[in-house]
Design a protein around this nucleic acid. Structure first.
Lengths: 119, 119
DNA sequence: TGGTATAGTATGAAAAAAGGTACTGTAACG
DNA sequence: CGTTACAGTACCTTTTTTCATACTATACCA
């Protein structure tokens, strides 16, 4: 589908971290502590079970996240970042920083505009 | 809609660079030379006029790309990266590098699997 | 005995993103 | 006089992504 190799590389990278919830899932897992399914759910109050499952499966598929099932009842499944997943940390950190600055910049522009309107 | 501020920051950053064609548009514009609408189209053979227009408008809205209209016939419009847009360069470069390694890694795994199947 | 917690799956609907095709006006080229 | 190039817009369809709700099995707790 994507013929251009440069585009492919962007697509591969972005596929791994994009998705409405992936960055924030990774953000929590990058804190270091393995998290159970419902712990993640509590950290992301607005996500549906379905989306959490789907995104975790994709991250697992890419070997960014590791899934460990403890054979007990009620079930216990722990998710943690892999060594490979950790290579994404600097990128996510940059994105986070840039995004923060971008939001602040937008709010500043908005405030300026509202100031001008009342002139 | 996005209540979590951390998530907002990711969303803001990703909104600015995600979209099927945005990274590759930015990649070309980051080469430095301003590009005309149809020059970009030729660089992205599979994009439709419509999608190119929409993505460029969004990038312009975020002040990542500058649009200059030359009042002549036939029309001439040049797109270039702004100073602000240039602050995305390191992030895009990292994404590109990571994506490249990720693609190679996947191909390696695939080759290993095929090797095992023929054992 | 009924409620809660665990980690999901199944199904259908809604929303968002992307695509396809046709169309615009003007000028230069052959 | 017909064609091409330019930079789009309009309209509609398809694809992809996300959401909402109901459902599963088992154990523990009161």
């Amino acid at each position: 589908m994507q013929k251009n190799p440069v585009q492919c590389q962007f697509v591969a990278a972005l596929d791994s971290i994009v998705g409405k919830w992936k960055p924030i899932i990774l953000y929590h897992l990058l804190q270091g502590k393995p998290l159970r399914f419902n712990e993640l759910r509590r950290l992301l109050p607005d996500i549906t079970q379905r989306m959490l499952t789907l995104h975790l499966r994709e991250l697992e598929e890419d070997e960014i996240v590791k899934r460990v099932i403890y054979p007990q009842i009620p079930p216990k499944v722990e998710y943690s970042i892999t060594e490979y997943g950790r290579t994404l940390a600097p990128i996510l950190e940059s994105l986070h920083q840039w995004g923060k600055a971008h939001v602040e910049r937008k709010q500043l522009k908005k405030a300026e505009n509202e100031q001008n309107e009342t002139d």
